[in-house]
Computed example of a mutant assay.
Amino acid sequence: MNSIKRHIVIASHSTLAQGMANALKFFEGDNLKLNVLSAYVDNKPIEGQIEEIFNQFDKDDEVIVLTDLLGGSVNQKFFPYINRPHTHLITGVNLSLAMAITMEPIEGYLMPEKIQSIISEAKKQVKYVNELAKNADEDDEDE
């Protein structure tokens, strides 16, 4: 079962995906293999670019696609690929989610429960820091 290959695709409007890939490589090293799609920056149809990406993968390979916006056209163009076996489409990506996915050991296919758990943890990273600081100050005053 260890012969499974996992491919990570990061796709976004403009160059957000490339920036995310650069940040991931900063933390995880330049050997990190990612497929990056910066949509609509070169006037090429995105459908063809997506098809080219998927044509590189064997049918048994696992593919995890991370996109920027749920209602966005980039996510919509990847949507038909969720019918491909071992393909997962995750949207609203942030850096902590992308790091958790890319650092996940390849010991078999990722189960939907594990992906849900990673998403849940990543959601906890979205905070309004002003409120956190205010609450911390109030806690200090209570002591």
Rank of each mutant, 00 (worst) to 15 (best):
A98R: 10
A136R: 05
S96K: 12
A122R: 06
S3N: 14
I118V: 07
I8W: 01
Q125S: 13
V129H: 09
L32D: 10
P112N: 11
V129K: 06
P112E: 14
L66G: 06
Q56M: 06
T102R: 01
E51R: 13
A17S: 13
P112Q: 09
H7T: 14
P112M: 11
I101H: 02
I119V: 14
L34H: 11
E104I: 04
G48H: 08
K59Y: 09
E52N: 08
G48R: 09
L16V: 05
G48W: 03
M111C: 06
D61Y: 03
E143M: 01
I4L: 15
A23S: 15
P80R: 12
K77H: 01
K134C: 05
D42H: 14
L110M: 15
H88K: 05
M1C: 11
F79Y: 15
D58T: 02
V74E: 06
F54I: 04
N43T: 12
D142V: 00
K134N: 01
N83F: 10
I115V: 15
P85Y: 02
A133W: 05
V9Q: 03
G92D: 07
Y128D: 02
K77R: 14
N135I: 00
V126G: 07
N75S: 14
G19S: 10
P112W: 10
I8Y: 11
N35G: 00
E138K: 10
I118C: 06
G92F: 06
V129N: 09
A133G: 04
N31Y: 12
L69T: 03
I106N: 12
F78R: 05
A100W: 02
D139E: 09
H13R: 09
P105D: 04
N130W: 06
D142W: 00
M103S: 08
T91R: 11
A98F: 00
K5V: 14
G48N: 13
H13V: 07
L70E: 07
I101Q: 08
I106Q: 03
N135E: 11
M99V: 09
V41Y: 06
M1V: 10
E107N: 15
L95T: 06
L70V: 13
P45L: 10
N31D: 15
M99P: 02
E52K: 10
N94I: 06
I90F: 13
M1F: 15
K5E: 07
K114I: 12
S120G: 12
N83I: 12
V126W: 01
E104S: 13
N135G: 08
A98C: 09
I101A: 05
E138N: 05
V63W: 00
V41K: 14
A17Y: 00
Q125L: 00
M20C: 11
N130C: 00
A133I: 12
K124C: 11
M99G: 02
N83M: 15
V41G: 08
L132T: 13
D142Q: 03
V9W: 04
V41C: 14
H86I: 03
K134V: 10
Y109H: 05
V129Q: 07
S12Q: 07
Q116H: 10
I64C: 04
Y109Q: 07
